[in-house]
């Protein structure tokens, strides 16, 4: 287990180096860098939402709210107050995590649909707070944010998000979260502090949503409340669902496919959303568990794992 973990890290670092070299050598132009940043931001958002929705089974559709907190707090820190980006980033993440905590506690009593709409409501309230606040530019939002995010920031951001979330999921804490998803009453009867684990999922998920917000704010020069409405939350949810809830690999693949599709369809913007929604509906009807639902790709890579599993199923 230990070894696989470090091999994975090593492979990603090689990937990082290659892309960085291509960027430095100006082989990848701005279009590709834009796409890479978008991809990274979306992966962080999707993977963090997957911790809440996919693994812990808490249906949240307010992720854009957490993202906006990361974006606004980091931008206030760097642009309005003149602090450095790393400090702004950290504050953005922490502020979002605190929001996750505040939102987490009262809403955790709710289940299913009710939780979903409560988180949707919270997300919208956060947006309306920005909208009504002149300090952050009201409806026009904050502009003139310096572009700090680059390939290195995005790559290591994604790496940290994925590794932290995978490390949680593949541990007793992750099993506790999954048990909450599978059967809350049984989980509690087995000594799992259900509230604690739901809150952890919300706080960690919100933390990384905040990170994604801070990165995108410091790449696209400006932020406005409309970018963080519930449509954005749905968009993130779709990334997760298309790939398959509860599968980190699936989530990443789903996010990459959709983000690339979006970029590819850029030339026909009016049809882009139509095609996007058709894909969403058709996926749900014909592949409701997502492209890789409940199948963690890592299983296929585990040495001998597949054959061993096959062996046990055949024993009577």
């Amino acid at each position: 287990m230990n070894k696989r973990f470090f091999i994975g890290i090593a492979i990603s670092l090689v990937f990082y180096g290659v892309v960085q070299a291509l960027i430095s050598g100006e082989i990848l132009n701005d279009f590709y860098i834009d796409t890479l940043v978008m991809l990274g931001v979306n992966i962080i958002l999707a993977v963090s939402l997957n911790l809440i929705n996919g693994f812990t089974g808490q249906f949240s559709i307010g992720h854009a709210g957490f993202m906006s907190i990361g974006a606004y707090v980091s931008a206030i820190m760097t642009t309005n107050l003149g602090y450095s980006f790393p400090l702004g980033l950290l504050c953005g993440c922490l502020a979002a995590a605190v929001a996750g905590l505040i939102i987490g506690f009262p809403t955790l009593r709710l289940k299913g649909d009710y939780l979903a709409i409560a988180t949707l409501g919270f997300g919208e309230i956060i947006r309306i707070v920005w909208l009504n606040n002149d300090y952050v530019g009201g409806a026009a939002g904050l502009n003139g944010i310096e572009r700090v995010t680059n390939w290195s920031w995005i790559f290591f951001g994604v790496l940290v998000a994925v590794v932290v979330i995978q490390n949680i999921v593949k541990s007793t804490h992750g099993r506790a979260m999954i048990s909450v998803r599978e059967n809350e009453i049984a989980a509690e009867a087995m000594g799992i502090n259900v509230t604690k684990y739901k809150v952890i999922a919300f706080v960690v998920g919100a933390f990384f949503a905040g990170m994604a917000g801070a990165f995108s704010a410091h790449y696209f020069y400006g932020i406005a409340p409309t970018s963080y409405n519930f449509m954005k939350s749905f968009e993130i949810l779709v990334f997760v669902v298309l790939g398959g809830l509860g599968s980190t690999a699936g989530t990443i693949i789903g996010t990459i496919l959709l983000t690339l599709l979006f970029t590819y369809l850029q030339d026909i913007p009016e049809w882009r959303m139509v095609i996007y929604s058709m894909i969403l509906i058709l996926t749900m009807i014909f592949r409701p568990k997502g492209l890789l639902g409940n199948v963690d790709v890592t299983k296929f890579f585990k040495k001998g794992g597949a054959s061993k599993n096959g062996g046990t199923t055949t024993t009577p």
């Binding site: 249906f59 959303m273 996007y276 929604s277 969403l280 009807i285 409701p288």
Partner: peptide, 22 residues
């Protein structure tokens, strides 16, 4: 599962809105 139908509903909503825009 209910989440699947809910997401489909979201998809239908997007579809109608964007067909409208187009």
């Amino acid at each position: 599962a209910r989440i699947v139908i809910l997401i489909t509903a979201i998809g239908v909503s997007f579809l109608l809105e964007n067909l409208g825009i187009v």
